[in-house]
């Protein structure tokens, strides 16, 4: 793959995110510029409250940008209809789903919503996509289980499978590693890494697991108080970006071991 010809799936251009009311404008993060290319695993990191969720909400069109533009496959995000966006971008959120009384198959089948008719009938191709999604996430054995029978880690996989069934170029995950133990955190991120390799999709996730993200991601977007920087983990380490990530009174970043240490 030559780096020059790689297709850009999502492009943020001079983006300002935040909240707007009638009277005032609260800018949470400003001057955001980055590109997500096809087949990249991208980690979004930053301290609590820096605006990771606000940025993700803006990228997924839940809230509007204060200024600047988002391009999806080269086209202005605002120019898409709901259904068109749903065919390019799928999401896995932190919020719990409303009902757990659906089977794993039924949940994943809902990923086909943008493609099915008004009754939501599944055709051959839909079944094929659902089965592929289940095998890619290794949950075929759960197919007929109800969601209330699953563990948090399994439910997470089901929601990722649902996003895969949606057949989009880009999958955005909001904190996919919360509520999981160390082993399952690694296995969730490993799964994302494998999915990127196998399917050529672009996956963007926000996380507090900076150590893991440095090891697994192709690209990282780092939000600090002063700027939002993106680049490969190696380039960011060389720039010293991670050293400025947290207030340096308690933890420091060790450039050699590539992880954070508690200050003695």
């Amino acid at each position: 793959m030559s780096l020059i010809n790689q297709h850009v799936v999502l492009n943020a251009d001079n983006l300002f995110v935040g909240y707007k009311t009638h009277a005032s404008k609260t800018i949470i993060a400003s001057n955001i510029n980055f590109e997500l290319k096809q087949g990249e695993l991208v980690g979004l990191v930053g301290v609590n409250g820096i605006g990771k969720s606000t940025l993700l909400r803006t990228l997924t069109g839940v809230q509007n940008a204060l200024s600047g533009t988002i391009f999806l496959n080269g086209k202005h995000l605002q120019a898409f209809t709901n259904i068109e966006v749903a065919k390019v971008m799928s999401v896995v959120l932190t919020e719990r789903i409303v009902t757990k009384n659906l089977s794993v198959f039924e949940i994943i089948a809902l990923g086909r919503h943008p493609y099915t008719n008004w009754l939501g009938n599944l055709h051959k191709i839909d079944h094929a996509m659902i089965n592929t999604a289940m095998s890619q996430t290794n949950i075929e054995n759960l197919k007929h289980k109800k969601c209330f029978e699953l563990s948090d880690g399994q439910l997470q996989k089901v929601m990722i499978a649902r996003a895969l069934a949606q057949d989009t170029d880009l999958i955005i995950l909001d904190e996919p590693t919360t509520h999981l133990d160390m082993y399952h955190k690694v296995s969730a991120l490993k799964l994302l890494q494998n999915l990127v390799k196998d399917t050529g999709k672009t996956i963007l996730f926000s996380s507090h697991e900076i150590d893991l993200a440095i090891q697994l991601c192709d690209k990282m977007i780092v939000m600090t108080e002063h700027e939002v920087i993106s680049g490969s983990p190696r380039a960011l380490i060389e720039k010293g970006t991670f050293e400025n990530l947290f207030p340096d009174d308690m933890i420091v970043f060790d450039n050699k071991t590539k992880n954070f240490r508690v200050k003695k």
Binding site: T60, V62, T81, N82, I83, E84, V85, A86, K87, M89, S90, V91, L93, E95, R96, I97, V98, T99, L102, E106, I107, L110, G111, H113, P114, T116, W118, L119, G120, Q166
Partner: peptide, 23 residues
């Protein structure tokens, strides 16, 4: 009857439903 499919999608919650293209 026209809402059946959308009701199922709403079972995921409104944010998920929106991400699936539901108005």
């Amino acid at each position: 009857m026209m809402s059946m499919k959308n009701l199922n999608t709403l079972l995921l919650g409104e944010n998920y439903a929106k991400s699936l293209g539901l108005n």
